[in-house]
């Protein structure tokens, strides 16, 4: 059943420690599994369920809500063409149609050689650089149909392998939050008033009490 590699399993356990409640690690662990395999396998979801302490149906329930998790293998390159309003205004829909022609697939489809999966995506926050495209979530801006053909060629030839990692890989730098670094991650029910707040509250209370005790203000304040 175990699907995570030993190194990824250690990483998974480290990720879980960052959260006061283990279930919060569900989505990060799904990403980790997808990074390892290119998609989110049933076995992975079962293992994640064990790790975060819920049922595998719950993991599937969560994962299936989110667009980025793929429950089956996809192309090496997920090519998402934005057709939302800012891109639509500058040719996003036509660009998507051109991509369909070039690749011979419809959005959602994968080319027979397993290289490309085409997607018709919603706004990817590059609206001023329309029409915008992402390949495995790496940005390409202001593309003409000719640019897109060239991009597809370059991806095919491996010329962009440094820029576009395999599907599933997101941020390549990881937050390093080993046990020695963590300041205060405890379950919510064990949390108390933070020390700096308590110190300032006590200071304020002491000042108020002192004020109340001094004869000059006693008459007005007590």
């Amino acid at each position: 059943m175990s699907r995570f590699s030993p190194a990824n399993l250690r990483l998974a356990q480290e990720i879980i420690r960052r959260y006061p409640v283990a279930k919060s690690a569900t989505i990060p662990l799904c990403h980790l599994a997808q990074e390892q395999d290119g998609y989110l396998a049933d076995d992975s979801m079962a293992q994640i369920a064990e790790l975060v302490g819920c049922s595998s149906a719950e993991v599937l329930g969560t994962a299936s809500f989110y667009e980025m998790f793929k429950m089956h293998s996809v192309g090496k390159f997920c090519l998402g063409v934005c057709t939302n309003i800012s891109c639509q205004l500058l040719g996003g829909e036509e660009l998507l149609e051109h991509a369909e022609q070039t690749l011979g697939i419809r959005p959602g489809g994968t080319t027979a050689d397993g290289l490309f999966t085409l997607e018709d995506v919603e706004c990817i926050a590059a609206c001023t650089e329309a029409p915008a495209v992402q390949v495995n979530y790496r940005y390409f801006h202001r593309l003409t149909p000719q640019d897109l053909d060239q991009l597809i060629e370059e991806l095919r030839s491996g010329a962009l392998d440094d820029v576009v990692p395999a599907h599933g890989t997101l941020g390549k730098v990881r937050q390093d939050l080993g046990e020695d670094r963590i300041a205060n991650i405890t379950p919510p029910e064990d949390q108390i008033e933070p020390v700096w707040l308590r110190r300032h509250r006590e200071l304020a209370e002491a000042a108020a009490a002192a004020d109340a005790g001094t004869p000059s203000t006693a008459g007005t304040n007590s």
Binding site: F65, F69, E122, L177, W196
Partner: peptide
Amino acid sequence: GTDFSVDIVLHWGAGAY
């Protein structure tokens, strides 16, 4: 060096407006 301690944890989503 103060008594102020806090963690900032980076988390990311998976595609849902």
